[in-house]
Design a protein around this nucleic acid. Structure first.
Lengths: 158, 158
DNA sequence: TATTGTTATACTCTATAACTATA
DNA sequence: TATAGTTATAGAGTATAACAATA
């Protein structure tokens, strides 16, 4: 796949947008792969009544350690102001509970409800399935390599 | 930078959020790599006064063939309603011109001005540089492999 | 003073529907 | 009737700044 022509110049070009110059640009690839995976996971989680980000929030509630909202925001890579609305919504859906941490009363500890724990687990299986299907065109080695490369690139660009 | 104590909690596990469970999820990787590349290219193009998407639009104006707005939207993978504002802005900046296609008066043909052509070329060199720096942690073979994998995944998930 | 959670604002992007002019 | 461009709207995400309570 993907011939020697990695960047074109003039002649032939393409029938489908994906084969045009822009579609071989890193920015285009990242944007569209990101958007398509988001649509897939959104659709898959819809029966559970949560969004991909909401599932990620549930799944990063560590039942062994207690996470404050700010810590969860860091784990998810989102802003703490976004976290407020996210927890609001998950609380409204009966998945999590806030309580003030006695030691440091500025912090809210977020815990899973039974419902939240169930949805987190079911969601995890659905997401596993999404990842598998999304990367189905790659063999196991290439799929691992893709994750490794993305991780390395993320870690070196802050 | 980023000492071992990035999370106050207790035991071992990870020092940085990126090493947590969520950060190994495909969705997390795609989102954050996408966002970071976007920030890099936005900053790099800032001196030219255009956004990454505006540059992509300029660079997909094919001077050999005439593209309508709708065709350009397809090449960029955006909606035709988004294209209107995009061309408005590029026209305001003196980079492109709209003119009605005589053969089919419903269509607008978009062409580059001299300014637009210069900015497109300079922007192309800046974006090349961004891609090189962004993927610097990968060797040439791994970088090519990453693009190939992203392309294959995009092509098989519509 | 600094940090946590919170609220508010502005800006962008996405998705959708509807309108117009043309075909 | 279908298509290209346009406008308007609503929803989500991102980025900021500011505030109250707490450390």
């Amino acid at each position: 796949m993907i011939s020697a022509v990695d960047r074109n110049d003039q002649p032939p070009v393409s029938a489908r947008p994906d084969e045009d110059v822009q579609s071989l640009r890193l920015g285009y690839l990242l944007k569209h792969v990101y958007l398509r995976f988001g649509r897939l996971t959104s659709a898959e989680l819809e029966p559970l009544g949560i969004s991909p980000l909401e599932w990620a929030a549930l799944s990063c509630v560590d039942e062994q350690r207690e996470h404050s909202q700010r810590e969860m925001a860091e784990l998810l890579g989102i802003d703490r102001t976004k976290m407020v609305a996210l927890i609001d919504e998950l609380e409204r859906k009966g998945c999590v509970e806030r309580r003030v941490q006695p030691v440091d009363r500025r912090k809210n500890i977020v815990t899973l409800t039974d419902t939240g724990r169930q949805i987190s687990q079911r969601g995890g299986r659905l997401i596993d399935d999404c990842e598998r299907r999304f990367l189905a065109v790659l063999n196991d080695s290439d799929a691992r390599q893709l994750r490794r490369a993305l991780y390395a690139v993320m870690a070196t660009n802050r």
